[in-house]
Design a protein around this nucleic acid. Structure first.
Length: 677
RNA sequence: GGCGAGGUAGCUCAGCUGGUUAGAGCGCGUGAUUCAUAAUCACGAGGUCGAGGGUUCAAGUCCCUCUCUCGCUACCA
């Protein structure tokens, strides 16, 4: 690899509409922090930037739900996450935010540069405008009648009743949710980044020059490049965000995906006057730590922006991780299925390193992984306490007992002693090699090998057995054990910084340079170590059960459907309801529509006729098992062509909380064509 | 359906350009040991490497088909 002069490390900007959880930590912040701490210990010039991503529609929606200003939302979560990260020990050089002045100026300037260079395409489209509120409406802010299923409160981007994704202009009788008025269609101008023009560049840069990227990252990029890149709108009509810095662009802001990654640049700017050195000098190695949901932005879109601007370097690597599950289920902010960092810090005070350790040991580097509290306990008790903590404790206790805390003078080293000491450098080399290749999980395992080495050394030499007969030999043994603990304090520093600090305190020494790892004379004979405490405590079953209980109650809350059931829709009149002609029919034939995942072609006896209906149920039913069943069917829905088949009606389904579908059927058999009212 | 990633011991994962009896950590069993938060150390049991074909003197490793998981994408009337 090229010899870089300095490193710029970014960690994905957490979205400021919720707290940080273990999934974020395991995928992004813990690996990034370990890597950065490692670089720092090696004396490398590195800065580590992050911050809150505070723009975008979801934040405005959350604000509206709570009846507050978006600013209140982002302030709340920015402060909360900033503090949680700091308390947890993620060592950002700066944790900034995209709502601040520097960022607004930077993002705005970045846009302006591209604009002046004539990079953007301009396109005019028609969008709804709320004349009362005086603004264009995001799709989410429009409700109306779904053209597909007739649901009266479909959103402009999606009908939650039938699940169809929509354009706001598809809705019948659209209403603004801001003012309740009927919006009017107006022309609106937007700017697009012509990603398609960079396709050749990316095919070369990623597929040829970046073969060293992780397979999951490389493969995902290949998938996108093969599908072809499309121009992407960089602006949108919204109040919350960074105004488009162009004449006549009132009410338009930069699309959040455009401004967010620029947040890395603004954060660097805030941090140092020398920011350009980190962003524009090819001797800087730029690395983005992200989760897999962010791959396309960091591997294609943001580099395209940087490339278009012209003066920036591109990322040298993007070590994206997969996702972490929790006790077998996907982590979900909305379902409160998560271990929140701020809560963990309160519930397990002083155990920051335990979580770091478990998340790193379980980091989803190659595929999604599962976090369980049982595993958390096991790793703490059987690895941190039993292997690492125990070795250190054994060494200390022996030192206190035999020498009153003074480092003894070693005698002549035996071959086995020399071999043990030489092993330290080998382990260090393994740790480095893994870290250099972003195999963080593996590197942690190697680091633990040093503690294993220590335990084995003590077991092999048995100082307690020969103290009476050969006290001189014991001095050497303890001396070497203590040198191992000292080396350990440096080697575990990137992974377990608090523990490393504690260990140094017990040893009564200053921080050791990474390059000194492997030395057998870190602690000088006669040096006093302090009366030690324990590095780790056992975690009892009760603490784990409490966490499981907490998750269990979350699960119950989620199942107690009130919390999850969608809100009641707007009132309708009896007449309106009676427009629906819903009947009971019998499924005569069923077959899966080829080349689709969900579609099933059904022939239904409606009592009036026999007709064909295409329905999105194939994921939950086999064709054979549903033939002969009675179902409810909306018969007067206007026909629609789906995959070349005319669908004449809609089968009514109930969607359970887990997303599975169930038929709405009569309690007892009735004649086909029976009317439902 | 298309594309991408993954499916290797009970669990979490290594196995590079195909080559001796498929590895590690944790868990499990047996033994040793007591300095240590019943911790440690040694040894051992456990895998038809998702399934089935094929190429090859030789395949976990290459090719084809199928299957399951995750993601992107199409589709959901």
């Amino acid at each position: 690899m090229k010899d870089y002069k300095r490193y710029l490390i970014t960690a994905a900007l957490p979205y400021a509409n919720g707290p940080v959880h273990i999934g974020h930590l395991a995928g992004v912040y813990v690996p990034a922090d370990i890597y950065v701490r490692y670089l720092r210990l090696k004396g490398i010039d590195v800065i580590f930037v992050c911050g809150s991503d505070e723009h975008g529609v979801p934040i405005t929606i959350k604000a509206r739900q709570e009846g507050v200003n978006p600013k209140e939302i982002v302030d709340r979560y920015h402060e909360m996450n900033k503090k949680a990260f700091a308390d947890f020990g993620i060592s950002f050089n700066i944790y900034s935010r995209t709502s601040n002045k520097t960022h607004h100026e930077t993002a705005s300037g970045f846009f302006k540069t591209l604009y002046d260079k004539g990079i953007f395409l301009e396109k005019t489209t028609k969008q709804y405008f709320d004349t009362e509120a005086g603004q264009f409406l995001a799709d989410r802010y429009i409700t109306g009648i779904c053209p597909i299923c007739g649901n009266a409160s479909a959103y402009g981007d999606q009908c939650e009743s039938c699940g169809t994704s929509l354009n706001a202009t598809d809705l019948k009788d659209p209403k603004s949710t801001l003012s309740g008025s009927t919006p009017e269609l107006r022309d609106t101008l937007h700017w697009f980044l012509p990603l398609d023009k960079y396709e050749d560049f990316f095919k070369n840069w990623i597929l040829k020059e970046n073969k060293h990227w992780k397979v999951n990252v490389y493969g995902q990029c290949k998938s996108w490049l093969n599908a072809g890149l499309q121009p992407r709108a960089v602006s949108r009509d919204l109040e919350w965000g960074i105004p488009v810095p162009v004449e006549g662009a009132d009410g338009k802001v930069l699309y959040v995906w455009f401004d967010a990654p620029i947040g890395y640049i603004s954060a660097t700017k805030e941090l140092t006057k020398d920011w350009e050195k980190y962003w524009k000098d090819p001797e800087t190695r730029l690395i983005h730590f992200i989760g897999k949901d962010n791959i396309v932005f960091h591997c294609i879109i943001f580099p395209a922006m940087l490339k278009a601007e012209g003066s920036y370097i591109l990322p040298e690597n993007v070590p994206a991780n997969e996702f972490l599950n929790l006790e077998g289920d996907k982590i979900s902010t909305s379902r409160n299925w998560a271990v929140w960092l701020h809560e963990y810090l309160e519930e397990f005070p002083g155990k920051e390193d335990v979580l770091r350790y478990v998340l790193c040991a379980n980091a989803p580097e190659t595929k999604d992984n599962d976090y369980t509290w049982k595993d958390f306990q096991t790793r703490n008790n059987n690895e941190l306490v039993a292997i690492l903590g125990n070795f250190v404790n054994r060494s200390f206790v022996l030192t206190q007992k035999y020498y009153n805390g003074l480092i003894p003078e070693p005698g002549k080293l035996l071959n086995s002693d020399k071999k043990t000491l030489a092993e330290i450098a080998v382990i260090k080399q393994s740790v480095e090699n893994s870290l250099d290749n972003f195999r963080i999980r593996e590197s942690l395992k190697y680091a633990m090998d040093l503690a294993r080495l220590g335990n084995k050394y003590l077991a092999d030499t048995e100082p307690w057995a020969i103290q009476k007969t050969d006290p001189e030999r014991v001095k050497t043994i303890i001396y070497i054990s203590l040198q191992i603990t000292a080396n350990l304090s440096a080697l575990i520093e990137p992974f377990l910084p608090n523990t490393a600090g504690k260990l140094r305190e017990y040893l009564n020494i200053e921080r050791i340079n990474w390059t000194d790892i492997g030395s057998d004379e870190i602690l000088k004979p006669g040096h006093h170590i302090k009366k030690p405490g324990l590095l780790f405590d056992k975690i009892e079953d009760a603490a784990i059960e409490a966490q499981l209980e907490k998750l269990n109650s979350t699960k119950k809350m989620n199942e107690g459907s009130e919390t999850n059931a969608p809100q009641q829709k707007d009132l309708i009149s009896y007449d309106e309801f009676m427009k629906n002609d819903i009947r009971i029919g019998t499924i005569l034939e069923a077959e899966k529509v080829p080349k689709t995942k969900k579609l099933m072609k059904l022939k239904i006896d409606t009592g009036i006729d026999q007709r064909t209906v295409v329905s999105g149920i194939a994921e939950y039913f086999e064709a054979e098992e549903i033939i002969g069943k009675q179902v409810s069917i909306l018969v007067n829905l206007e026909p629609r062509n789906i995959k070349g088949i005319e669908s004449q009606g809609m089968i009514l389904m109930a969607e359970d909380t887990d997303g599975s579908l169930k038929f709405i059927m009569p309690g007892d058999k009735v004649s086909n064509g029976s009317v439902i009212s």
